[in-house]
């Protein structure tokens, strides 16, 4: 739980000369679920893109498994971290083919799937519960099923670190919980997860640590219970938080 997987030190990031995220330092430990929360436009997605290596940092350094993020070749990086952005396209292909694309970084020059690649594809479909959908066309799936199919692709990529940008957006509440428990399940199978969530009660219920962002800066990064107790979250979002005791922990909800 304490080995540093990804280390950000004094990172500034953004598009063009203007930094959206500035002076950001955070260590992501192996085996945790870390959730980024913050008001709209505070730089959560920018930060996630920077962690994924899609956006070069304006300054500062990112160390992935002890090596600078920029020193990774594209395929080596894709074997270490996977990134699921928001709003995926819906090409006219079958679920199984989509999931198998997760093996792309492992394929040789001939792009030929080995038995290991097939096995990993199969496992990824099994763990995410999309096996019954394997021959369905992506365009025929509901939003929740499609999201699970994309998650399966990322799982097939078989990386220690998963970066998920708002994985529950556009899903109904039932599918949101289904997806989050899937994330929890992947985590218990050894994956480190960094995700952006909008729903504070989900963030509190499903994370080991929460990083609270405000205007491109890290306000604090704490466990859900201590973050809630500190009242910082309530202040940043301008809401009132409520804590409900249940067996084995707490549930949280927020009102204006």
């Amino acid at each position: 739980m304490n080995e540093a997987l990804l280390q950000l030190s004094q990172v500034s990031a953004g598009y063009g000369p203007k930094a959206i995220v500035s002076d950001f330092s955070l260590t992501i430990r192996a085996g945790e679920i870390l959730t980024l929360v913050g008001p709209n436009g505070c730089g959560k997605s920018t930060l996630l893109k920077t962690m994924a290596g899609h956006l070069p940092p304006l300054s500062g350094q990112l160390m992935l498994q002890g090596k600078p993020l920029t020193s990774y070749a594209p395929k080596a990086l894709a074997k270490t971290l996977s990134f699921l952005p928001q709003g995926q396209p819906t090409p006219d292909i079958e679920v199984e083919q989509l999931v198998s694309h997760g093996r792309f970084p492992y394929l040789g020059f001939q792009r030929h799937m080995t038995p290991l690649d097939r096995q990993k594809t199969e496992e990824a479909m099994a763990i995410t519960g999309v096996l019954p959908l394997r021959h369905r066309l992506l365009s025929s799936l509901s939003g929740g099923e499609k999201q699970k199919a994309y998650l399966a692709m990322v799982v097939a990529q078989d990386t220690p670190l998963l970066l998920l940008d708002e994985p529950t957006t556009y899903l109904d509440i039932g599918h949101q919980f289904e997806l989050l428990s899937l994330v929890q399940h992947l985590n218990s199978a050894g994956k480190t997860v960094v995700m952006v969530l909008h729903d504070l009660s989900h963030a509190l219920a499903y994370s080991h640590r929460i990083a609270l962002l405000q205007q491109g800066r890290l306000l604090c990064c704490q466990t859900p219970a201590s973050l809630f107790a500190s009242g910082a979250m309530q202040q940043v979002f301008g809401v009132t938080g409520h804590q409900v005791c249940r067996e084995g922990g707490y549930d949280y909800y927020f009102t204006p």
Binding site: A52, F83, L84
Partner: peptide, 20 residues
């Protein structure tokens, strides 16, 4: 053809799968 299939997933996803 295979690379084209991956590219059809959009540039962000193609890039995160290790494609240049």
């Amino acid at each position: 053809g295979y690379d084209l299939n991956v590219l059809a997933l959009g540039e962000t996803i193609a890039q995160s799968l290790g494609m240049r």
